[in-house]
Design a protein around this nucleic acid. Structure first.
Lengths: 252, 252
DNA sequence: GTAGGAGTTGACGCTGCGTCAATGTCCAGC
DNA sequence: GCTGGACATTGACGCAGCGTCAACTCCTAC
C-alpha cells in the first residue's frame, strides 16, 4: 500500500495545488495525517477521501466555512446544499436582472441593430455551437438554420425567443404544480412548443421524442429548462413524448 | 445656482457614500472640481452627471477599470456593454450549471443509501451486475465491494466518482491530442487511476493489465470511456499496460 | 471656549487562493 | 564530503470595492 504521500503527491492526485492544501490545513479543513520533525506534511488515504469531499463541495460553489461546518459534523451535507441552493437561485435572479438591464441600456445607447445577431436563443451563442451542430446534424443543417434565423429579422428573432420563454415558463409552472404531462393544458403548451420548433425544422415523432430526451441529457439544455422549475426538463420530456405518440407520425 | 457641493452633499444627492467618492477620486474616476486649501473636496454640476454615469454602469455590473476606460473615452459605452454582456451570459450559464449540479447532488445524498444501489460506478447499477460479479470474482469480492462502498458515505461516493471522471476526462484529452501512452503526463494520470482503483482493491500487474483489457472488451466500459474521446478505451488500455510493466509487481 | 458635526488621510478586513521571497531538507552523482 | 536541483517550510502581498474604525483637523453655533 502507498500509505503516505507528500503534499505534492496528494495535490497532484486530487488535481489541486500544494498551496491550497496548506491553506486548508490553516483553516482546519484538512490536517496532515502526520507532520515530520522537519515540518513536512504527510497525508494518507483518508486525507485523500476527505480532500475529495472538500473539492467536490467547492466545485458546487460552497464557501470554505460552510464546508468546514459539514466536515466537522455541525451541519449535514444536504442542509448545507439546500441553503447554498437558495443563494445560487438569488444569484441567478440578480444576474438575470442585470442582463435585462444591460440589454435595455444597450438598446437605448445604440440602435441595437447588431445586437440581435449576437444574442440568439437567450444566451445561446450560435457560433459557439457551430462545430457541434455540424458534427451532429451536418453542414446543411447548420447553414439552413443560419439562413432561417437571419431571415427572421430582429423583430422576428425577438418574438421567437419570447414565445419560447413563454412556453418554457408555462411548462415550468405546470411542472411545479404537479400537473400531469398528459393533461390537456400541458399538451396545449406542448403543441405550442411543437409549432415553435417547427418554425425552423419539422420533426417527426421519433425526432421530437429524441429532442425531449436531449433536454434531459444535455446539461446545457437541462440547466436552461430547470431554471424555470426543478425537474422541469424531465417533465417536458415526458410531455413531449406523449404529444409525439398522440399527434405525430413516425418515419416510414 | 447651487454651484458647489461638499462631499456629503454630492454623496447624498447621488445616493452613495463619501467613502465611495474618495475611492473614485483615488482611482481617477471622479476628481473634485475644486479642493480647498484645507483639503476639503468640492464638486459641481458636472461632477454629479459624471457620477451618475459611473453609478449606472456599476449597477449594470461593470468593473471600475472598465468604467474608467469608458469615461476616459478609450472605449465607447456600447462596446463595453456588449463585452460585459458576454461575461454576464457566461456567468449565468455557470450559475445555472452549478444549480443543476447541486440539485443532482442533493438528490443523491438525500437518497443517500439508495445511491449506491442505483448508480454505483458512473451510472452502473450495482444490483444489475451482482450475478456477473459473483460469477467472475466470487461472493466475497461482491460483499467486500459493497461494504467498502457503503463505508465511503454519500460524499465519499460522490468524490470517488468525481475523481474517476477527472481521470477519464484527462486521459480522453490526451488520447485526442495524440499523446504517447508511455509519456510522463499520461503515466501520471494512469498512476492516479491506479490509486483510484486501489481505493477498493489493489491489483497486481496482471490484474491491472486485465482490467485495461476489459475496458476494451466490455462494451459497457468501452462506451463509458469512449464518450470522452473516440478510441479512448484502447488508449487507456495501452497506457495501463505500460504502467503495469513499469511499476507493478507480478503475482508470484 | 467648547461641543459636536463634517472633513481629512491612513489602514485593516473580506474570499480563496496565486505568487514571490527567503531559507531549510532530501536525494543523487562526483 | 560536496554540490546541484527538486521539494519543503513560513510569511506576506495582491486582488475588487468599498465598509469601517482610528486619529486628527476644521467649521459653526452657542
Amino acid at each position: 500500500m502507498t500509505g503516505e504521500w507528500s503534499i505534492q503527491d496528494l495535490a497532484r492526485a486530487a488535481g489541486t495545488t500544494s498551496r491550497t492544501l496548506r491553506h486548508y490545513g490553516q483553516l482546519g479543513l484538512l490536517a496532515p495525517s502526520r507532520v515530520g520533525s522537519n515540518g513536512y506534511r504527510y497525508y494518507d488515504q483518508e486525507s485523500l477521501v476527505r480532500l475529495q469531499r472538500i473539492l467536490l463541495l467547492r466545485e458546487l460553489g460552497l464557501g470554505l466555512p460552510a464546508i468546514a461546518d459539514v466536515l466537522h459534523g455541525q451541519r449535514d451535507t444536504a442542509a448545507a446544499l439546500r441553503t447554498h441552493l437558495e443563494l445560487l437561485e438569488q444569484e441567478r435572479q440578480r444576474i438575470a436582472r442585470q442582463i435585462a438591464s444591460v440589454r435595455t441600456t444597450l438598446h437605448k445607447t445604440e440602435g441595437g441593430e447588431q445586437l440581435m445577431a449576437e444574442e440568439a436563443f437567450d444566451g445561446f451563442d450560435h457560433r459557439q455551437y457551430e462545430g457541434e451542430v455540424v458534427q451532429r446534424w451536418g453542414r446543411d443543417a447548420w447553414d439552413h438554420g443560419n439562413r432561417w434565423w437571419a431571415a427572421l429579422g430582429p423583430d422576428g428573432q425577438a418574438a421567437h425567443q419570447a414565445e419560447h420563454e413563454a412556453i418554457a415558463a408555462g411548462l415550468g409552472q405546470a411542472a411545479t404544480a404537479g400537473a400531469d404531462p398528459a393533461s390537456d393544458d400541458v399538451q396545449a403548451l406542448v403543441a405550442r412548443h411543437h409549432r415553435w420548433v417547427s418554425a425552423s425544422w419539422t420533426p417527426d415523432a421519433e425526432a421530437y421524442v429524441n429532442l425531449g430526451q436531449m433536454y434531459v441529457d444535455d446539461p446545457r439544455f437541462a440547466a436552461n429548462y430547470d431554471q424555470y422549475a426543478e425537474g422541469a426538463a424531465f417533465f417536458i420530456r415526458d410531455a413531449m413524448k406523449v404529444y409525439a405518440e398522440r399527434n405525430l407520425a413516425s418515419a416510414p
